[in-house]
Amino acid sequence: MPELLPLYGKTLAELQDIVSQEGLPPYAAMQLADWLYKKNVESIEAMTNISKSAREQLVGRYYVGLSKPEGVSASADGTKKYLFRSGNGKFVEAAYIPETGRATLCVSSQAGCKMGCLFCMTGRQGFQGNLSSGEIINQLRSIPEFKNVTNIVYMGMGEPFDNLENVLRSTEVLTSEWGMGWSPKRITVSSIGIIPAMNTFLSRSSCHLAISLHSPFDEERRMLMPIQNVYPIADVVEEIRKANIAGQRRVSFEYIMFDGLNDSPRHVREISRLLHNLRCRVNLIRFHPIPESSLRSASDETIIKFRDALTSKGIFTTIRASRGLDIQAACGLLSTKGLLKNKD
């Protein structure tokens, strides 16, 4: 018996290909999209405006492809961390972060990560595989708080631009009229700045972009993020300038603050020079310590001073609240390394 293929996460064009291959009428693609992404059915049998014979035909080759989380941890602050099994048998995590008036879901795009950043737990588990578009959106669709989520950030495990096509498929499903109908202004894709993929993303998507900055200085950023050897941050910023981002689309720079490393007035001056006249914001993040790391977070007082100094240079700067620290769901802590050998 042939292996069943998942429908969830397919774009309209891909659904059109499927109905064409199956000899179904062209309008069936839109019907499939409607059932998958608006009516949120969990089986092909439930797609009742598709003819019974067509459903039987589809059931022989496809299934919806949703998968429920296999575990959940709840933080005292209301954050929840969900554990999902990906198609290649590896595990990924997603963090649901409720706040007053909004709820953000932080999704993973890969199992593990190849980028090897010094401060990140995910990087320590190496790379296990890309998530499909369906596996990315399933992290939203299959949590109990699905309907409460107001914002999605691609800031979980993995580097989204190292899995660009699946990330773009997923944002297409999320933002299309035929799909889930989300505004792209409620979706942020975060990257360390893989330039060719970033340029493709900027031209093919309207979602917000976040870039991991962490240091404006070459040697320092290289120590924190080996990608600096391939795509220096100055080149990344230059490409963003060329993209001439306008309207409501937002570019932000993520900046984890390390005690005594990247929290000085010299850093403020260099960030100010790097981002001069670029319409963007800087998001300061406390460092959440990881085992066997000598890195420490800057103090709250230092972070506030840093924010004020950047603000005085004309750069809109915010401080991200740390959420889910007690369940290792905070920024940089997602990891399923412990499960790699424990579960099949």
Partner: peptide, 11 residues
């Protein structure tokens, strides 16, 4: 020290 380590990763 971390600042004495420079890495190139194949990705």
């Amino acid at each position: 020290p971390p600042d004495r380590i420079n890495a190139e990763i194949y990705f």
